[in-house]
Amino acid sequence: MKDILSIVFRLTLTCLMAATVMGAAFIFTNKAKKHNEHVREERTMYALLGYSEAKPAPASIVLHQIYRYIITEGERQYVSYLIPLESGKPGAPPTYSLISLDLQGKMVDQKPVAIDGEKIREREDRDRAVMAAVGPGKDVHFADHTIIVTENGKRIAYLLGGKFPGFKTFINVMLALDPSYTMVGLEILEHEEDPGLGAEIEQDYFKNQFQGKSIKTLKDLKVVKEPLPAEYQQALEGGMAEADMARIMEKYKDKDIYALTGATISSKSVTDGVKGMAKKFAYRLDILDNILKEQQIAVSF
């Protein structure tokens, strides 16, 4: 009996100590983790726009975050966009609004969302704010995240984040489009493809093939199982003079994607995923822009 008591007591004490250590570690690291994730995300965004630490982005460049939600109320579904509004005064913190459209693309309502620019980036805080704004009894489901980049108030690019099934698990990417929906760049953020085979999707000679593809080319972009031409590979990897590079990139602009050797399925997954993302985004943004113009909603982008 005494034995059992002693065992229970010691086990409890051990668990308590373990819980303290883990809890402390969690609290200490959680903030740093979120911060580093943001830093990494932002670095990727600026890299896609052509900026780096050596060449920082000017202050006239502003990133506007747009979050798309799907809201279900009984049988009916709405597509809602959480967008920053024009603040009026320069330097004032942006206010946010949730614009709901029905499935036919007609505006349903506009509701203010109480959230600030820091909190909006945390998924949980944002979901809570949106739920509070739409009211109870509705199912709120986060769909995707888009960034509209402006320079002196003029749109220069769109950045889309997305995730699609790859060969093994999911591939997480970010792609950049210019205002006419032509691909500016592609960055592979996370994947679990096989090293030496599918993992090559993160190499320049594969992901840069998407550069310069117009939305029209993208719509029926295919993957071909042909060897990558040597001059194209050199241009993709950036190992030549800029004029030559531009000429070769121009030459292959409307060509299909050359599959990676031994990783056709990974190549095809990325191509189809990117294709779908760009197509859907172009379709949706046109509708949203029309609505914003019709309703004369002053947005910051």
Binding site: M22, A25, T29, N30, A32
Partner: peptide, 18 residues
């Protein structure tokens, strides 16, 4: 004990070396 330390290392790596 091991699980505790693995959790700590896991959290630290995830935070500082993503």
């Amino acid at each position: 004990t091991i699980a505790t330390w693995v959790t700590v290392i896991d959290l630290v790596l995830a935070a500082y070396m993503p």
